[in-house]
């Protein structure tokens, strides 16, 4: 009897081990192959600066209330409220200790496109790598090169304040298994180069869907409602539907470009909320990119 029950016990231990190994295999941090980050050459700093404005890095990573040139000090420190707790945004300045000055391109690239930190750990998706996953290694290289030219800050942000079970970093692996991919968010038949460029900017660096697409209870994007708007994840109020099914259906492409450049809607209401900072970032982009974003927003399915 004793030997039988010990056999069952041993079997259970093996099963549990296999289960845990399988779970680990499915959810472990998964960086890209090193080759993806090799031979990218000298970063193009002009393009790198455009990526930072398209990506809106400064809106989270600059100090609270920073304006003008001060937004380029990526000291972190802002608090980002969410239904899961408060995230404290880290320092990504060029400081070698407090920031990312001593990171390799592979470390930076895996954080950006795979949500894998420099120690090989999962990063929380409050950092929108779920969108940045679509960025080209060339853009990541240019961005990294540009960030390293910006001022260093020695600020150290406090740790995130998350409730159980969200405070368990391993659980992020399960979240990635459910929601993370680097595929296009919508299939657009006959998209021309302009629309494709817009798709890249909106779905990748621009990460527009992170606010403009509603989320489910676990914080995954409801991609069948892509860009359809919803409750504000950071607090009260709501985020507008920016598909042709929303109020912007009456906006022309030129109206959208004008909004991105000046902050004025066609009826001269002004940009507000978190979008005010986004608009200030977008205003730095070349006109052609803003036209591409507008063309894509006209092309996505109405919701």
């Amino acid at each position: 009897m004793a030997s039988k029950s010990s056999k069952i016990l041993a079997g259970l231990v093996v099963l549990a081990g296999v289960g845990a190994a399988t779970a680990w295999a499915l959810t472990k941090p998964s960086p890209r192959p090193d080759a993806d980050w090799a031979n990218l050459g000298t970063p193009d700093l002009v393009k790198g600066e455009q990526v930072i404005w398209a990506g809106g890095c400064v809106s989270c990573h600059a100090a609270t209330g920073a304006t003008g040139e001060a937004v380029k000090v990526l000291s972190g420190g802002r608090a980002l409220p969410s239904p899961f707790g408060t995230f404290h945004i880290p320092n990504i300045s060029s400081d070698p200790h407090a920031g990312i000055g001593s990171w390799t391109l592979a470390q930076f690239g895996n954080a950006m496109t795979r949500g894998v930190g420099p120690e090989g750990e999962h990063l929380y998706p409050s950092f929108p790598y779920g969108s940045y996953a679509r960025m080209t290694p060339a853009d990541v290289n240019n961005l990294f090169g540009y960030i390293k030219t910006l001022p260093a800050s020695s600020n150290v942000a406090p740790p995130h304040e998350l409730g159980f079970p969200f405070n368990i970093r391993l659980a992020v692996g399960g979240w990635k298994l459910l929601y993370f991919n680097d595929k296009p968010r919508v299939q657009l038949a006959n998209a021309d180069d302009k629309v494709k460029r817009g798709q890249y900017l909106v779905e990748g660096p621009g990460h527009c869907g992170e606010c403009h697409t509603p989320r489910d209870a676990l914080g995954g994007l409801k991609t069948n409602l892509w860009l359809a708007g919803g409750p504000n994840p950071e607090g009260k109020g709501s985020i507008p539907n920016i598909t042709p099914g929303g109020k912007v259906k009456d906006w022309s492409e030129a109206d959208m470009v004008n909004y991105f450049q000046t902050g004025f809607t066609p009826d001269f209401d002004s940009v507000g909320g978190q979008m005010a900072e986004v608009q200030q970032n977008l205003a730095h982009l070349p006109q052609a990119d803003l036209e591409a974003i507008s063309a894509y927003l006209k092309a996505v399915p109405a919701r």
Partner: peptide
């Protein structure tokens, strides 16, 4: 509007 107006 950034701070004091929110969309309903």
């Amino acid at each position: 509007h950034q701070t004091y107006r929110m969309k309903k």
